[in-house]
Structure formats: structure tokens, C-alpha cells
Computed example of a mutant assay.
Amino acid sequence: MRAIWKGAVSFGLVSVPVKLYSATESHDVSFRQVHAKDGGRIKYQRVCSIDGEEVAYADIAKGYETEDGEMVILTDDDLAELPLTSSREIAVEKFVPSDQIDPMLFEKSYYLEPEAVGAKPYALLRQALLDADRMAVVTVALRQRTTVAVLRVRGDVIVLQTMMWPDEIRQPDFTIDTGEIKDAEVKMAHMLVETLAGDFNADDFEDGYAAAVDAVVKAKIEGGEVKRTPTSTKTGGEVVDLLAALQRSVDAAKTARGEAPAEPEKAEKKPAKKTPAKKKAPAKKKAS
């Protein structure tokens, strides 16, 4: 893994220098939009919704849309005045009981690795969090924006999990009419829960969709159902295509200099050099 951030965890007068690593990665299946006829990728243009003209990247600005649908253009000077920070500190604000934080607030997870000089205080903080069954609520600046996060223990490692702001959690705007719930129905529900009770093991589950897509793609490749485009991912056929392309390039260069392209028989002299190597293999077998 590659560290994406370096800083220090500070609580009280203690400072623990750490490195930050992304703890998760997405394996979601993604498709490209292509032309069904030849497999060419679909390109998109930056077109203004008002005049219908294509807009150069240099003419694109940041806009904030109001609730009324009006657009406020923000200039570079406006953005420069925003309260950004480049602090390298993970400041512990308080230690709270683990069950007080709604999991819906959790956003992205990172592993914290201590620098060599911070290994002991790192271990002490990790043990203290475990023994107290608490999480550390912290503030940290990532990508120049200050956010709230928590430190919690996962195995032998301290994990930093960024959190969403409270107003980013939507409240349900619907009501549920349950009607009358009978005691017998509740008892049956309890029996069902007990029947399916068990311990959670993430390895018990797999992404069946991704595996199915992979199987379909492999079957199509083996069946020759592949569209060759200039941007195709290189496969085993690369060698033949590359040699042909190189030969065409050499011929074109010779033609430009007024020289004749290589004759077919001359091009075949190269494999002739490999003939002695082929004869050596049987000789070794006889010796053994």
C-alpha cells in the first residue's frame, strides 16, 4: 500500500506521528459505453445547455445552483477566500462510547500506521480505546477540508473513519402503518430470528454478479467475440500485431528515403538464426 497522507494524532500532550492508507477499494463491475458496430468508445463534448455550443475547458467555471434554480458563478478569488486548511494534525476532541455513534455517519475508512518513534504511544492509545470500549472523535484536514472522523480499533490497527455531517443524513419522509401486531406473530418472528441466528463472517459472502460478468467475458474472448480497436487492451495477440506494425513502420521509413521495402525472403532470415537452438534440445535429451 502507498501512504496518501502523513501527520500526527494529538491527544493531550501526546503526539503520535502516523501515515494514512486507504483501507478499502472498490471491485464494482464497470462497463464502457461503446459503439455496438465496432466497439469504439463513446466520447462526450462539453456543451452549454443555453447556446448549444461546445465550451473550451479554459472557459469552464464553478457554479453553485440555488434552490430556486439560479446559478451563482464562483471565481478563483472567491474560492481562495474559503476556509481551507493544510494542517497535518489529527486532533482528538473527546473519547465517546462506541455505541453512541450511528453507523450511518461513517463514510470512508483509512488505516493509521505509526512512524517508528510513535510506535509505543500508538500501542498505548490502541489499548486504551479497546479497554474503554470507546472511539476517539477527531477533526482532521483531508484534501484541504476539515472533517470530523473517529479513531477505532480493528485488530492490531487503529482505523480512522471519516464521518458525514449530521445534515447529510436524510430523514425518512414516510410513515409505516403496521396495523395490529398480535403476540403470536411476534413470537413467530422471534423463532425465525433464532432459527437464522449466527456469527457474521465476511468470507461467507461473495460478489456473484462480478463473477458472472467475468465468466461471460472470458467465454466471449475464448469464442473470438472481441472487437479490435486502436485502444484495445493488449492481449496475447499483441506480439503478432506489434511485429506487423513495426514492419509497416520500417517499410514506410525506407519508402520515404527512396529505398525498397524488405523482400519477404529477407524477412524470413531472422527465424533461421533460431535453428541451431532447436537442434540443441534433442541433444540434451540424449545425453540425459
Rank of each mutant, 00 (worst) to 15 (best):
E265Q: 04
D76L: 05
S109Q: 08
T231L: 06
Y57Q: 08
L142I: 14
V239L: 15
G236I: 06
I169T: 04
G52T: 04
D59E: 10
A219R: 09
K278W: 12
L196R: 05
L20W: 06
C48V: 14
M188E: 14
D51S: 05
S30K: 12
L243V: 09
V55M: 01
R248K: 15
M104E: 15
E265V: 01
A252L: 07
P166C: 08
D156W: 09
G236N: 00
G237Q: 15
I181M: 13
R143L: 03
G236L: 12
V157E: 04
D76F: 07
E265N: 02
T147F: 04
A136T: 00
E67R: 09
R2L: 10
F106R: 03
V186K: 13
K94G: 03
A202I: 11
A252K: 11
K187Q: 13
S10E: 13
G223Q: 15
R257E: 13
R143K: 04
V16E: 02
A119Q: 06
P276W: 08
K94D: 09
L13M: 14
K254G: 01
D204V: 08
E194N: 11
D51T: 00
A245C: 09
L20C: 05
T231Q: 10
I73P: 00
A281K: 08
L192I: 12
V226M: 04
C48R: 08
V34Y: 05
K273T: 13
K269S: 07
S98M: 12
V117S: 15
I60Q: 09
Q127G: 04
V92F: 05
K274G: 13
E54Q: 11
G208P: 02
H190N: 12
D156H: 15
K19H: 10
S86Y: 14
I50M: 14
R134T: 05
V47R: 06
F31K: 10
D68W: 03
K37G: 06
A197C: 10
S249E: 15
G69A: 07
E180G: 03
K37S: 09
D173R: 14
K94Y: 06
R257A: 11
P83F: 01
A149H: 04
Q161D: 11
E65C: 02
A215K: 08
G198H: 05
K62R: 12
D207I: 06
A36L: 11
Q247M: 11
A210I: 08
E268Q: 12
S49M: 07
R41I: 11
K37W: 06
D183I: 13
V216I: 12
P282W: 05
D214C: 02
D251V: 03
L246A: 07
E107K: 03
A215D: 07
A267N: 06
L151E: 01
V159T: 08
V157H: 02
D207A: 00
E113M: 05
A36T: 10
A56L: 10
T178L: 06
K280R: 05
N201E: 13
D203P: 04
K280T: 05
D241F: 03
R143G: 01
V137I: 02
N201C: 07
R170M: 13
Y21I: 11
A211G: 01
R143E: 08
V226L: 01
G69D: 02
F106N: 05
D173T: 14
A277Q: 06
W5T: 02
G155C: 14
Y209K: 01
A202H: 08
P114H: 15
N201T: 12
D77W: 10
I158A: 03
A189L: 13
E265H: 05
I158G: 03
